[in-house]
Nucleic acid binder design. Structure first.
Lengths: 145, 145
DNA sequence: CTTTCTGCAAAAGCTTTGCATTACA
DNA sequence: TGTAATGCAAAGCTTTTGCAGAAAG
């Protein structure tokens, strides 16, 4: 199965489910597998994507499940524009955003130096970083004049 | 008038209005004056705040006006939680946040080196930064053991 | 006077919730 | 067999829009 490579997250989910008397369902497995294939996705996008496989899967179930992933530490919700993006935490730390306030364009970038400085700041304050969010807002070259 | 200290932004607004055949109204003046007194605010919060002064001021007018300020470059919208925060662009004493996922403690910090690297990343991608948001999530010393 | 604004209410997204039914353990 | 999860539809929130009357230039 394709989910073999997602064993780590699958276990994290199962562990969370066990701790909270929740159940491992066909839908949760399907949604997790689809989710882990992307860096970030909206509930609506996942709904359309999975409709091909399971036309009866409800949008509410997707919302409930993505929120469950957040509780389990597998996903992280990020409000962007009018929608919520669910980020794949295992890709995080390599995935910050430059956002044009003029046209909405998003450029993804990673910068190890910034991350190193973040670690320093955290250490200085006695923190151990689990994840972070960095968004730079500005104007792209096309929108600047 | 109390608005004397906000002359710069008031002029920026008037200039934008002039350029676009828009009008300078009592409501726009009132909302701008209230807006400039804070670092950031939601439409709803401003609605309640101004209700004391002008009980007939509509929420729709506040939304329209705050969005106008964004067009004029005086404000900047940032989606946070389920609401939109309108940031006062002239307050650039920007602080970032360290957030403990264990106890919810928030530590504010500033780091010029990180900001310098952000500028570099932006420049490399043809962006001019207006503002940014950096949040580090992790465990504080007390929550770690 | 003409054009733009405002206030109200209604509509429009996105997300959550209630409930009967189904699936898991 | 007892809980929890699902699907559907309805409700809830925040934000936007339509329109008639009011205000600005």
């Amino acid at each position: 199965m394709g989910s073999a490579k997602f064993a780590k997250e699958m276990n994290a989910l199962k562990e969370h489910l066990g701790k909270h008397q929740l159940k491992f369902t066909r839908q949760r497995e399907m949604i997790l597998t689809a989710f882990l294939r992307q860096e970030h996705i909206t509930a609506e996008a996942m709904y359309h994507q999975l409709a091909k496989t399971d036309p009866h899967l409800g949008l509410a179930t997707i919302y409930r499940t993505l929120n469950l992933f957040c509780d389990a530490g597998i996903a992280q919700a990020r409000h962007f524009g009018s929608q919520t993006q669910y980020d794949n935490v295992s890709h995080k730390g390599h995935h910050d955003h430059l956002i044009c306030t003029g046209c909405g364009k998003i450029v993804e970038f990673e910068n190890c130096e910034i991350e190193k400085l973040q670690e320093e700041v955290a250490a200085r304050n006695g923190f151990t970083i689990q994840t972070h969010r960095l968004e730079l807002y500005g104007l792209c070259s096309r929108c600047r004049h």
